[in-house]
């Protein structure tokens, strides 16, 4: 099962994504972290997420760049978080993929979904504040949308999280039993 979990800031998307992994019959549970810790605010955010995951039996893999270099164990339950960070890293880090980032990330996600039993990808909704940003930010928004749309097309289910509540944009009809409720 592959799922795309979308939401705005502090919408409860991480917690919901984790619940999908916990409901899945697949093991091991692997958390692929894309965030680079740059300051105390990042550290606090990471600590908050680690606390949420504590005792849920996740192995953590750090992949701020080059997601495709990670070989997913066959049949694992994988949570990749978050596309907003992964894209920013690939686009702006000196050794990132630059404008090839969306294609490279989508190829990597496809490869992981071919090996994982369950793949849940968390991404952000950053498209609705009505502001007109500079060229670079607009490019970033378009690229994130390209990733979101690309992965949504191949995902079994797409959920938008609003105040912790999942809205089903692409309902899943899993033959092996629906655990993406």
């Amino acid at each position: 099962m592959t799922a795309l979990v979308l939401g705005g800031a502090a919408s409860g998307k991480s917690e919901y994504a984790e619940s999908l992994i916990l409901a899945s019959p697949h093991k091991p549970r692997i958390y692929v972290a894309a965030m680079i810790c740059r300051d105390s605010e990042d550290a606090a955010r990471i600590a908050r997420h680690q606390a949420l995951r504590a005792e849920k039996g996740f192995l953590t893999v750090e992949r701020p760049l080059d997601l495709g270099s990670w070989e997913c164990p066959l049949g694992a339950a994988v949570l990749v978080e978050c596309m907003t960070n992964l894209l920013a890293n690939e686009l702006y880090e000196p050794n990132g993929a630059g404008i090839q980032a969306p294609e490279k990330i989508l190829t990597a996600l496809q490869a992981i979904s071919a090996r994982a039993g369950t793949l849940v990808v968390v991404s952000g909704d950053i498209f609705a504040d009505g502001k007109n940003y500079d060229v670079e930010t607009r490019q970033y928004q378009r690229m994130l949308s390209q990733i979101n749309r690309g992965f949504a097309a191949l995902a079994d289910t797409v959920k938008e999280i609003v105040c912790g509540i999942p809205l089903d944009w692409k309902p899943w009809n899993g033959k092996e039993g629906n655990y993406a409720g």
Partner: peptide, 11 residues
């Protein structure tokens, strides 16, 4: 709903 935009520059 105020969370669906680019991360603000101001802390």
């Amino acid at each position: 709903e105020i969370g669906c935009g680019i991360v603000p520059m101001e802390r």
